[in-house]
Amino acid sequence: MLEFLHDDLAILSVKEGCGEGECGACTVMLDNKPVNSCLILAVEADGTSIRTVEGEVKDGKLSPLQESFKKNHATQCGFCTPGMIMSAQSLLERNPKPNEEEIKEAIEGNFCRCTGYRQIIDAIFEVTKNAK
């Protein structure tokens, strides 16, 4: 599915970091659950709803999570960022008030070599402050 999304549909936010389900750079939401798109055959996803980070922008505005990533410097090289945001967004939709451990757990499968994760965790945590 990674190749289908990236190469055939030109949904370029879906990145290949390893191609074997270890790094999370290709994470998308499949029926609102985060999955490594490199581990799924495109045909398996027939009839499901796929969300990528492109879809998080509404009316030209960043989502609250994207805004928070921007404000907290939670992106550096940016290669892991789309997958990271999808994992975090999925967490926040399942659990709007996660604690630090739950945040770490949710993004454990998304490698980031630049940030050291702290500002990413802070960015996710900041969004939860406004959650009901």
């Binding site: 370029l12 990533f69 410097h73 992106t75 940016g78 789309p82």
Partner: peptide
């Protein structure tokens, strides 16, 4: 101040 490339990176529009 936020990174000047942040918008492109959080939306997946930065091109590699």
């Amino acid at each position: 101040v936020p990174r000047i490339d942040a918008d492109l990176k959080v939306t997946g529009q930065a091109t590699y």
